[in-house]
Structures are given as structure tokens and as C-alpha cells.
């Protein structure tokens, strides 16, 4: 009844290795990154987004025309290589390429600021609601339900009407209205986190609730928050374009992709390039952001598929 101990050890090591339980183990983030890199749509999107960002912020230094300077020699000019208006000009003789790049920059800036605002509000609101629970939680979540049901774009329009069209207000207003889903997600995560050992331990050692939320809960929410924020960005860009399209967004001479598309629509028969170029930029921006968001979600939460 004696087994060769060497043989037995070898067998055990073989089995262990086969199960992928090598001593270092696998890190969750590394795994997720590997899955993300395998997702072709996401990788292509990251490249496209990087190019768009580069073009929007560096491009204006390399093109011969400013976004608000009329070229008296070229009104309503179709795209042409010779005069340097690669995307053509608008009825005021302004270079469309410069304007599209500027509009993209505005869209990206809105996306960044508004997402930040929505993340801050959503995370705080959700974490507080989830952590304290009980009556406070049900009141806070009922409020979110109500807000969900209301046509919030009308409120943004209302705010723009009342306080005038101010870019910063627009940023904040969109952000302040996109936090609802974020709050729900964070609340759900907080509910499951708050009974974990490290939170119990912090509570037992007498830390204040606000400190527990900021020190122990929020750091553990980074994953889902980043994923959801990535999914929010295209929504925000679409919302900003929508408002600008209706004339409630950024004002002349500033411009955004939505405003450009609105101008292009008015002249789409006679000057189709005015619609086509901003549309292509907006769609590729939204498309790449969407694929990146989806890719991140799938990479971190593979069971979804």
C-alpha cells in the first residue's frame, strides 16, 4: 500500500498545472485587458478615437484656415485640394475642416466635463443611498425613478432658456441629468460591498460613515464606474449634438458637431459636403466610443455574452 512518493508528487504538480493554478495565478485586470485586446472592434475603435482626439486638438495647427475667419475668395466652395479647403467652405466662407475639428473638440470637451459631473454626482448619490439603506435609500431611489420618467432634455432646454446659452452651464446641465443610471449601478454595488469583511472591519473600528464610503467603498467601485462612464460618453455627445442641433447648445461663432449638422441639413441639396463631413465625424466618434464601452464591459464581465 505504499505509493512511490516521487511519482505521486509529480502527478499532483501535473494536475495543478493543468488546471491553470500556477503559483502566480491570473490577475483579473490582466485577463480583462487580454480579452479587450482580442476584441477587434474595440481595438480599431481605440485607434480611431485616438486619431480623432489628435486631429481635434493638434489638427488646427496644421491647417491653413481658422474656424471663424471667412475666406473672401471662397464662399460655398466644394471640397478641393488646391485652395486648402479640403472639406470645402460654408455660406460664410469659413473653412469646414477647421470648423469640424473645432466642433469635435467641443463635443469631446462636453463629453469629458459632463461625464465627470455625472460620475461625481452618481457615485456619491448611489454610495450614500446604498450604504445607509433603509428609508433614506428608498426615498433616494424613488427620486431617481421619478427623474427617469421625466423628459430631462426639456429641463435642459428650460435651463438654457432661463439662464441663457452658456457653454459651461450646458456641460453641467447635461452632466447633472445623466447621473441617474450611474447612481443605480453604484447603489447596487454598494449594497453588496457593505457587508464585506473589510467594510465591517472599518465600521467595527469606529470609522465615520462618510470616511468608510470614501476610503473603502468608492475605491472598490472603480471597475463598474469606469465601464459605465465609458458607456455614458456617447450618450452625452449625442445629447449635446441634439441640443446644439435644436439651437440650444453652443452659440456662434463657437460651434459643435450638432450645430454643423443643423447647418448642413438646411443646405444638404446644394452643398451636401456641409452635412456629410460633420456627420461622418459624429458617427465615427459615437461608433468608436460605443465599441470601446461595449468592449470594456465584455472584457470585465464576460458572462454577459
Amino acid at each position: 500500500m505504499i505509493l512511490n512518493p516521487a511519482k505521486r508528487e509529480l502527478l499532483a504538480a501535473e494536475l495543478l498545472e493543468a488546471e491553470g493554478l500556477s503559483p502566480e495565478g491570473r490577475s483579473l485586470t490582466k485577463d480583462a485587458m487580454r480579452r479587450l485586446c482580442r476584441n477587434k472592434a474595440a481595438v480599431v475603435s481605440i485607434v480611431v478615437l485616438a486619431l480623432l482626439i489628435l486631429a481635434a486638438f493638434l489638427g488646427p495647427y496644421f491647417i491653413p484656415h481658422g474656424y471663424e475667419d471667412p475666406d473672401w475668395a471662397a464662399f460655398r466652395a466644394p471640397p478641393s485640394w488646391e485652395d486648402g479647403h479640403y472639406f470645402g467652405t460654408d455660406p460664410n466662407g469659413r473653412d469646414l475642416l477647421a470648423r469640424v475639428l473645432y466642433g469635435t473638440r467641443v463635443s469631446l470637451a462636453v463629453a469629458f466635463v459632463a461625464t465627470l459631473v455625472s460620475v461625481v454626482i452618481g457615485v456619491l448619490y448611489g454610495a450614500i443611498s446604498g450604504y445607509f439603506g433603509g428609508r433614506l435609500d428608498s426615498i433616494m431611489m424613488r427620486f431617481v425613478d421619478i427623474m427617469y420618467a421625466l423628459p430631462y432634455i426639456l429641463f435642459v432646454i428650460l435651463l438654457m432658456v432661463i439662464f441663457g446659452r452658456n457653454v459651461y452651464l450646458l456641460f453641467a446641465a447635461i452632466g447633472a441629468l445623466e447621473w441617474l443610471t450611474m447612481a443605480r449601478i453604484v447603489r447596487g454595488q454598494t449594497l453588496s460591498l457593505k457587508h464585506r469583511e473589510f467594510v465591517e472591519a472599518a465600521r467595527a473600528s469606529g470609522q465615520k460613515p462618510l470616511k468608510i464610503i470614501t476610503k473603502h467603498i468608492i475605491p472598490n467601485l472603480v471597475g463598474p464606474v469606469v465601464i459605465f462612464a465609458a458607456l455614458t460618453v456617447p450618450e452625452i455627445i449625442a445629447t449635446e449634438s441634439f441640443l446644439s442641433y435644436l439651437g440650444f447648445g453652443v452659440q456662434e461663432p463657437l460651434t459643435s458637431l450638432g450645430t454643423l449638422i443643423a447647418e448642413g441639413t438646411d443646405a444638404m441639396e446644394s452643398m451636401p459636403w456641409l452635412l456629410a463631413f460633420p456627420a461622418v465625424f459624429l458617427v465615427s466618434l459615437l461608433l468608436s466610443l460605443l465599441f470601446i464601452g461595449d468592449g470594456l464591459r465584455d472584457a470585465f464581465d464576460p458572462k454577459d455574452r
Binding site: 456617447p234 442641433y245 441639413t265 461608433l287 460605443l290
Partner: peptide, 18 residues
Amino acid sequence: ILVGVVFPNFLIAPILQL
């Protein structure tokens, strides 16, 4: 889904009109 989400209605509308 892609068309619906990526093409805002103010973009689809003029394209369909055209």
C-alpha cells in the same frame, strides 16, 4: 441597434429625406 444608437435622429431624418 448600431444604426439606431449611432445615428442620431437629426442625422437619419435628412438622410432618409434625401
